[in-house]
Computed example of a mutant assay.
Amino acid sequence: MKVTVKIVAAAVAFACTMPVLHAQNRSTVRTVSPKEEKNELSVRAQSLYDKAGITEADIPWMRVIYRSVDLTKEKNMPLYYPEESMENQENMFRLIVRLMADGKVPVYEYLDGREIFTEAYQLKVKDVLDRYHIPYEEKQGRTSKTVTFGIEDSDIPTNEVLSYYMREKWVFDQRNSKFYPIVEALCPVLHRAGDFGGEAVKYPMFWVRYNDIKPYLSQQYILTNNENNVQHYTFDDYFQLRLFEGEIYKTTNLRNMSLMQMYPSDTARVAAQTKIENQLKSFEDNLWVKMPEQEDTDVKSKAKDKDSSDVKEEDNNSKKEQKATVSRSTRSSRGTVSKSKSSSKSSKVSRSSSRSASKSAPVRSVRRTK
């Protein structure tokens, strides 16, 4: 009897403590406020952008290209405008600074040709803001260890970031048999003049990995066309579709030299840039062995091109010959006309002379004598 009484008492006590445990669990779940959850990506949303990357064993060929994206050009203006935040639009540099200030995206030291994206080269947000004289206000985060920085919109120097450095990899993926470029990192470049004016000096600020900001870029829609004001594309679409215009200023080489250092003259540097672009375009065509049918079509197309060029040359030559014959005929006709005129003049002179001679000759009368 005593044992059964103890078991019943324990069951009653456990049943009484269950609602209290449920209430405590509910209170712990609701500790995060809706304001803190704003602009946060869930684990499921981040998993949509996490793809199984290719390994080094799948890449038998790769070339690293550095480009300079000038925001003053028309194709690159979607990255710069609007300068001030609007309802559904925002400047890309402003977006990157906010992500950096909130501690959502790490940034790394700018090293010319030696980009290392590890914790050893990760920059502190406070050091970046102090280095480029951007006012901020320190805020305590959710825990005592995390600190965020509040920056006013007017203090972000969006009007001075007029270009970006882009590091991209052109990769041949033998697993998928594809050749494509991968945007690896972006570096905002600050164009800031001195206290006494003059030409603006470029200051590369920091590197940010594209995969870190890709989930946020894919949620920000931009205006890419002045004639069509519907926002079809995001920042991520803009880079994946390669709607930008970037000038090659460097490729990875043994001496770690830029094209400006290797080719001081403008003509040689432009020729080197076009050569690199042509190499990237023709690399994929040279990978595969063409089928006989494709070779025949290529030969026919080349023959057609040659025939068309020959026909054009013949037409040009015939036109030149016609012009030459016309000019000759006009010259010869002029000569015959002058000759006919001279002959007619000579005939007129001979006739007039004969007439005058006949008039001036004496007339003799012969009288007959008986």
Score class of each variant (00 low, 15 high):
T4V: 13
K6N: 08
A11Y: 07
A13R: 04
F14D: 02
T17R: 04
M18D: 04
P19W: 11
P19F: 08
A23G: 09
Q24S: 07
S27V: 13
T28M: 14
V29R: 12
V29G: 01
N39P: 00
N39A: 03
N39L: 04
E40G: 01
S42K: 10
A45S: 10
Q46N: 09
Q46Y: 06
Y49R: 02
D50T: 01
A57S: 14
D58Q: 15
P60G: 09
I65Y: 04
R67C: 13
V69N: 02
T72K: 06
N76W: 06
N88F: 15
N88S: 15
Q89D: 12
L95A: 04
L95M: 10
R98F: 00
L99N: 02
A101I: 08
Y110I: 01
L111G: 06
D112T: 02
R114C: 04
T118H: 00
E119P: 03
K126W: 01
K126Q: 10
D130H: 12
D130S: 13
Y136C: 08
E138F: 07
Q140H: 11
R142C: 03
T143A: 08
T146K: 14
T148H: 09
F149L: 15
I151L: 10
S154F: 13
E160I: 09
E160W: 11
V161R: 06
M166Y: 01
M166P: 00
R167C: 06
E168F: 03
W170G: 10
Q174G: 01
N176S: 10
Y180F: 15
I182M: 07
V183S: 05
V183T: 11
P188Y: 02
V189C: 08
D195S: 12
F196M: 09
V201L: 12
K202Y: 04
Y203Q: 05
P204S: 09
I213D: 03
K214H: 11
T224E: 14
N225W: 05
N226D: 11
N228P: 03
N229Y: 06
T234R: 03
D237M: 11
L241C: 02
L241S: 02
L243T: 02
E247S: 12
E247P: 00
K250W: 00
N253L: 05
N253Q: 06
R255Y: 04
M257Q: 05
L259E: 04
M260A: 12
M262L: 14
S265P: 01
S265T: 10
A271S: 11
A271T: 10
A272P: 07
T274V: 08
K275P: 00
I276Y: 10
F283S: 15
D285N: 13
L287A: 10
L287N: 06
K290P: 03
K290F: 06
M291I: 07
P292R: 07
E293C: 03
E295T: 02
T297W: 02
D298M: 04
D307W: 15
S309A: 11
K312L: 07
D315E: 06
N317T: 07
S318H: 09
E321K: 15
K323G: 08
S329I: 10
R331N: 15
G335M: 08
V337N: 11
K339M: 07
S340E: 02
S344R: 15
V349Q: 14
R351D: 05
R351P: 00
S354G: 14
S356C: 05
S356A: 13
S356F: 10
A357Y: 11
S358R: 14
S358C: 03
A361C: 06
A361D: 04
A361H: 06
P362G: 07
V363K: 05
T369Q: 03
K370N: 05
K370Q: 05
